[in-house]
């Protein structure tokens, strides 16, 4: 007990450097995003009219700064259909992709949990390895396969399933394949972690008491795996909403996800204030899933 108390203080000291780092490079930058989102667009370098610094001129300066704040960018986000549609599309795509991954990932995670104990770590490594492999390369690998004279069309034509090459690239199908492919490990691992905890004795007890396999699965296995389902769903859903690379490379350019819209505003239109406002709204949309995810993560790592 004595030692624990002794150790508590150095642990606080250990927190100082990472705490300051994250406050400076993670938290503080959001203040700048909010600030720029409230300023006016300008053709300049950097391309916005700065809001007067509060330090200049005390209370009067502060009031002047407040008066300069403009909600124009947010008005634009609401009034222009492009943005609203982008947000809706992002949420829809993320929801559909997450649902597909849950359907595919659950049987895989279940199979992993049923493997003999010495094979389970091997299966886990096999699922993790693609996560370590470059994200961009994995998407690029799919461009190879899905292009007009790519391997998929060749295979389908050889099997006489289709007569002419199918257009896969620049479609939603390609985008969903890419998203599922990239994020599947994030779904499988939390599912596996919770399914591996399932005590087989519970299933045997259910069977002894006359429960059918399907019913036992529904009444025993599913409830036990729910924390894993929650973690997997959030781990996939949140980043997919803001995804840029996959829709940009695999989906068509007629309908954009919000990450693409933000990218376009920033890099192509050089409209930093609108890009910032887009980011602020995106963060607001994701706030509740983010908070739920935080609770889950803290509980899982036992820090709360």
């Amino acid at each position: 007990m004595m030692a624990r108390r002794l150790f508590a203080r150095p642990a606080r000291i250990a927190a100082i450097a990472p705490y300051l780092w994250m406050a400076l490079f993670f938290l503080l930058p959001f203040a700048f995003v909010v600030k720029i989102s409230l300023s006016q667009t300008a053709i300049a370098q950097p391309p916005y009219v700065p809001v007067i610094a509060i330090a200049e001129g005390g209370w009067a300066g502060f009031k002047a700064a407040l008066a300069q704040l403009s909600l124009d960018n947010f008005r634009l986000l609401i009034s222009d259909n492009i943005y609203v549609l982008s947000y809706l599309r992002s949420l829809t795509v993320a929801a559909i992709a997450t649902a597909i991954m849950l359907l595919i990932g659950y049987p895989i995670a279940y199979g992993m949990a049923r493997l003999p104990a010495r094979w389970q770590p091997v299966a886990m490594v096999l699922v993790i390895v693609p996560f370590w492999t470059s994200f961009l390369i994995r998407i690029y690998a799919w461009i190879n396969i899905l292009q007009h004279d790519g391997l998929l069309n060749k295979t389908l034509m050889a099997l006489r399933i289709v007569r002419e090459p199918v257009t896969w690239l620049s479609t939603d199908t390609a985008m969903y394949i890419g998203i599922v492919y990239s994020y599947l490990p994030f779904m499988i691992l939390p599912l596996y972690a919770s399914l591996a905890k399932l005590d087989i004795g519970l299933l045997e007890a259910a069977a002894d008491l006359g429960c059918s396999r399907l019913k036992a699965f529904w009444l025993v296995t599913v409830p036990i795996s729910l924390p894993g389902v929650g973690a997997g769903v959030l781990l996939c859903f949140i980043p997919i909403v803001g995804e840029f690379v996959i829709p940009d490379l695999l989906a068509g350019s007629d309908r954009l996800m919000i990450g693409q819209t933000l990218w376009l505003e920033f890099f192509t239109n050089k409209d930093w204030p609108v890009a910032s406002a887009t980011a602020v709204v995106l963060l607001a949309v994701l706030l509740i899933p983010l908070l739920v995810y935080q609770r889950l993560q803290q509980r899982q790592l036992g820090t709360d």
Partner: peptide, 29 residues
């Protein structure tokens, strides 16, 4: 080390929040 060995300290929830959020935060943000 601070999270698993430190007892409660001021701003601890904020600290763990700042550490976990970037794991899922969309990269564009």
């Amino acid at each position: 080390l601070a999270l698993s060995r430190g007892e409660r300290f001021r701003g601890r929830t904020l600290f763990s929040g700042m550490l976990y959020a970037p794991l899922v935060m969309p990269e564009v943000i």
